[in-house]
Each structure stands twice: as C-alpha cells, then as structure tokens.
C-alpha cells in the first residue's frame, strides 16, 4: 500500500511510527527508573524531538558515522545501538554500550559507528569533521551525520568546524536540532542572527530549515542532504525546528518558558501528528498502534531485565581503558 500524496508506503510509515514510539516509551521508562534511582547522573530527554532522529537516521547507511550529544538516547536507538545495551549503560554495568563508564550522556558504539555521547556542547562537531576527513582520505564514500542543539551554534567550535568542513568540502551532514532553548536560554537571547540556516550558509555550506515535528519532512530532507553530501557536494546543514517537551535535564524549574508555550508545542507532538496523517491517508490499520505499543513495551521490558541482570565492573579494573597499550 502506498500513498501517492505522502509519497510513502505502508511499511516505511509503520517503521517511522514504530521508531518514534519506541524512543518515546524508552525515555518514559528512563524517567521511572531515574525516580527509582536506578539511573543516576544527568538524564536529558529527547521527548518531543523524536521525529528528527527517527526521520534522519533512515537516510544513512551502516557504513556512515553518527556523532551526537548528551541528549542522544533517541539517536542511539534509531541508529541501531541495542536498547538493552543502552539501558545497561545507564545502570552502570559492564553490559552497557560504554561498559558503564559513560552513562546516559556518553553512549558509544563502535559497531554501529556511533561516536557518542559528547557532553561538551559543540565538542562533537570537530570530531565529525575529522571522521569525514578520514572517510575522504581513505577513499570511502561515507557520510558523517553530526547532531547538536542550536545552543552549540554560539560556540567557537561550531564556527571552526563549519569552516573546515566547507573549506575542505567534506562529507558532513550537520543536523542542528533547534528546540529553541539551550537550557534556559532562548534562541533570540543567544544569537544575533536567529536564522541558523542563513548563518551556516555564510560558510558556503548548503543549508535549509526543516519542520522537525514532521517525521516525513525530516526523512525527506535528510535523504536529499545525504545524497548531496555523498555525491561530493560538500557539507550540508539542516536546521530541524523542534521542541523539547520536558525539562532540560531531570531537574529544571523551567522558569524560562511558560506552560502555555509548552502546551502549544505539545499540540504538534510528532507522534500524534504522524499518526493522524497516516490515519487520514488510510495507511494505518486498526490494531497497528496497539501492536507497535506492545512490541515496544516488550523490547523495553527486555532491556530493563537485561540491565538489571547486569554486572558491576570489579573495582580492581578501575583504571582499565585509560591507555590502549598498557602502562
């Protein structure tokens, strides 16, 4: 079944919906586990922004690379890092994707070329430039997708990375997730020019803005951008306009925005929007949603079981993995 207007077939539609619901429910479970003190440290939720990772990640090949931030559960899941190993990471056990050394902010997985999990704002951008440089120098046609928040745009590293990528025409896809706030700092109070795509184009980077609450728009933009980048067209910058529904981290008095504003954005919940569109297009069958929810719950239950059965690393191994070559 294919809808010509949405240019979408049923299986792809269900895949996207499944991915968004999966990320949402996974993080909701994380909240419960955080309250139960099973997950500690900082926990930055992606709730509200799922369409971006779910939509964009599908444009990448397994041989491509992904760089993300501390708000990266959704990216890791969508990239194919196993839910059990992500959950185990947050439980701080060796079965975690970073062996319990990183926690929520530092998910890494070499096998899916998922390069973190970077908690220094904008710190991942130069890494992405280098990963792309390595692909190019090695004659591989890989693309490096780098996700970051709009707050990063004010950092020097953003500008240095944009310039390098453009100057050397490197295969980087810059995915700016503009959720309007960097912690409590609204975009218009942190940028002299709030049109971020315009800003990026100042570096000679192809750039445009995308509705980040519309998973199809996200997917389509990413496909087009990845084609350009892989085809040797140099870096592309996508500004995904989105919104985080929850606090910056787990605790945040949210003094910087009104409840009404949050409510208005919740009306554009990417999962609800997409569900409604699919239903209207006749791509959704009765039982689809329930089935997705059931599958997702089963996967998360399993992930939690796996994490709960995990092994704390022996304290004698404390200084392991500081050097590859033993000292």
């Amino acid at each position: 079944m294919r809808d010509p207007l949405l240019d979408l077939d049923r299986s792809e539609a269900l895949r996207l919906l499944h991915e968004m619901v999966r990320i949402r429910r996974f993080e909701e479970r994380c909240v419960e586990l955080y309250s139960a003190e099973r997950i500690r440290g900082f926990l930055h939720l992606y709730i509200g922004e799922e369409a971006v990772a779910a939509g964009a990640m599908g444009a990448l090949r397994p041989t491509d690379a992904v760089v993300a931030t501390y708000r990266e559960h959704g990216h890791a899941l969508a990239r194919g890092v196993g839910a059990p190993s992500i959950m185990a990471e947050m439980f701080g056990v060796v079965e975690g994707c970073s062996r319990g050394r990183g926690g929520s902010m530092h998910l890494f997985d070499a096998s899916t070329r998922f390069y973190g999990g970077n908690a220094i704002v904008a710190g991942g951008l130069p890494l992405a430039v280098g990963l792309a440089l390595a692909d190019r120098m090695s004659g591989r046609d890989g693309v490096t997708a780098c996700f970051f928040g709009e707050g990063a745009v004010a950092e020097g590293e953003f500008h240095e990375a944009m310039n390098l990528a453009a100057l050397w025409s490197l295969p980087v896809l810059f995915c700016c997730e503009n959720n309007l706030y960097a912690m409590g700092t609204a975009l218009e109070r942190s940028e002299s020019e709030t049109d971020l795509a315009l800003k990026a184009s100042g570096y000679g980077v192809t750039a445009w803005a995308v509705d980040g609450m519309d998973v199809l728009a996200c997917a389509a933009a990413a496909r087009r951008a990845v084609d350009t980048v892989r085809g040797g067209g140099g870096p592309v910058f996508l500004e995904f306009r989105t919104y985080r529904f929850r606090a910056h981290s787990m605790y945040d008095p949210e003094l910087y925005r009104s409840k009404e504003e949050v409510e208005r954005w919740r009306e554009r919940d990417p999962i609800d929007l997409f569900t409604a569109r699919l239903a209207a297009a006749g791509l959704l069958e009765p039982g689809d949603l329930d089935r997705i929810e059931d599958e997702v719950v089963a996967e998360i239950d399993e992930a939690v079981r796996f994490a709960e059965a995990g092994t704390p690393e022996p304290v004698e191994d404390l200084t392991k993995d500081v050097y590859r070559r033993a000292v």
């Binding site: 319990g100 050394r101 704390p312 690393e313 404390l318």
Partner: peptide
C-alpha cells in the same frame, strides 16, 4: 589516574 567513570562504585 582515570577519567571519572559513571558507575557509582567506580
């Protein structure tokens, strides 16, 4: 002599 690990006991 290690970057600070996440796991509490470590």
């Amino acid at each position: 002599e290690v970057p600070i690990p996440y796991a509490k006991h470590l």
